[in-house]
């Protein structure tokens, strides 16, 4: 029996934790008990902003990595965070997973850092909830005090928002006291943190997601495993996108339903307004390409491939439906 220590910065509750637990259970089952994951939750071994060097140095064998903490080192994975037209969690994960798994430049870049890609999650699509006046158009963003994250936050800032920097856990109190008017978020997280209690409305942006969240592994450890063990890890990692897609879609639908029940107005941003946001994100794509090329990655080519992959999996979803819906019915 080989025990793999996994470092996870988050708690053992919620959709991401359930998917990680599923991954651990599947690894044990598919290897017939030959591989076992020992998950250290809550950043007991290392916090999210120390994950890359901790994995490279072998503090844990596998671990959860969030790309936004490593704009330079994890430039390749950061492609999944870009504010492109990418609203579907499953499509986004499938596209990210295929890019990370098949692109040779990416694999080489990771190998230099003593890392191997295993599998991916996503935060799912970025939305925004407010207390008081709602965001019904891009023009409504102007003058609002907004807690934003990543390139999405920068686009809100460009649209005239007054950006306030605080953690998602402080957003509840921030909305409650009026320190912020709006908070960028993901439906299941808004629900888990009970933010609906202090929100009057929630605008579905149908825009993009923060998808650079996934499992990586120490390369020395990966190389020391047998071919069968490696196969178990990579195939289970690939299958995680389907499993997490199922979980997160259900969790988000539930979250929206419960927000409606609590009297939060759910608003769909019109297509024309959404196009403005996607347009506003363009300049941040250019900045990403620069960073990627500085670390030796073919930035423009990767963006092209990524867009093609999003199109491919959108097409697949539209013709066949989600994989869990096919097998479920």
């Amino acid at each position: 029996e080989t025990v793999l220590i996994h470092g996870e910065a988050g708690p053992n509750r919620g959709a991401r934790a359930n998917a990680l637990q599923w991954f651990a259970d599947q690894v044990a089952e598919r290897s017939s008990g030959d591989l076992r994951m020992d998950i250290q939750w809550g950043g007991a071994l290392f916090k999210a902003n120390a994950a890359v060097q901790s994995l490279a140095d072998g503090v844990a064998d596998t671990g959860s990595v969030i790309a936004v903490y490593y704009p330079q080192e994890m430039a390749a994975y950061g492609i999944a965070d870009l504010p492109v037209n990418n609203p579907d969690a499953w499509v986004g994960m499938r596209a990210t997973d295929e890019l990370m798994r098949t692109n040779e430049a990416v694999a080489e870049n990771l190998a230099e850092k003593n890392l191997v890609y295993i599998g991916t999650w996503t935060t799912s699509q970025v939305n925004i909830g407010c207390k008081g006046d709602a965001i019904r158009s891009v023009a409504d963003i102007e003058g609002k005090k907004v807690r934003g994250v990543g390139a999405y936050g920068k686009v809100f800032g460009e649209a005239g928002a007054n950006m306030v920097n605080m953690s998602i856990y402080d957003a509840y109190q921030g909305l409650d006291t009026g320190l912020i008017d709006c908070s960028q978020g993901y439906s299941y997280a808004v629900s888990a943190l009970k933010q609906a209690e202090v929100m009057d409305n929630y605008t579905m942006l149908n825009w993009g997601q923060v998808g650079g969240v996934g499992i990586f592994m120490n390369k020395d450890m990966f190389d020391s495993l047998t071919a069968e063990q490696q196969e178990v890890l990579t195939t289970t990692g690939a299958d995680m996108a389907d499993e997490f897609g199922r979980m997160i879609t259900i969790a988000n639908d539930k979250a929206i339903a419960s927000m409606k029940e609590q009297g939060v107005e759910i608003i769909e941003l019109p297509d024309a307004e959404r196009a403005k946001l996607v347009e506003g994100g363009q300049k941040f794509l250019a900045a990403w390409v620069e960073t990627a090329e500085a670390s030796g990655l073919p930035g423009d080519k990767m963006l092209e491939d990524y867009a093609a992959l999003i199109a491919k999996y959108t097409q697949e979803r539209d013709t066949n439906g989600y994989p869990w819906a096919q097998s479920g019915n």
């Binding site: 071994l45 290392f46 916090k47 902003n49 120390a50 060097q53 901790s54 140095d57 072998g58 503090v59 020395d220």
Partner: peptide, 17 residues
């Protein structure tokens, strides 16, 4: 050798963070 690398990495990241 591997232990030195992992150990020092862990004590550094936990105190620095």
């Amino acid at each position: 050798e591997r232990a030195i690398r992992a150990t020092t990495s862990m004590v550094f990241s936990n105190s620095f963070d």
